[in-house]
Amino acid sequence: MTASVAHILATGIGLGLAALGAGIGDGLVTSRFVEGVARQPAAQGQLMTNMFISVGLIEALPLIVLVLVGFVFTK
């Protein structure tokens, strides 16, 4: 296994794990949001605001991983 093959593998695994993390996190938040709106439709505005805040916060770390693995560590 040469260095460039190892680089490509590392990039692929890193990006895949980042996408997995973002997907699961966003899915959990959104499912709770839909459940909350189903229980009380009047709260949709406030819940949706919180959902977008949470999605932005949760996606921060996978995005950091993406930027680091994709552009910093592969040079």
Partner: peptide, 9 residues
Amino acid sequence: FRLFGNIFA
């Protein structure tokens, strides 16, 4: 990093 990553990506 959050802001940078989102916009750059």
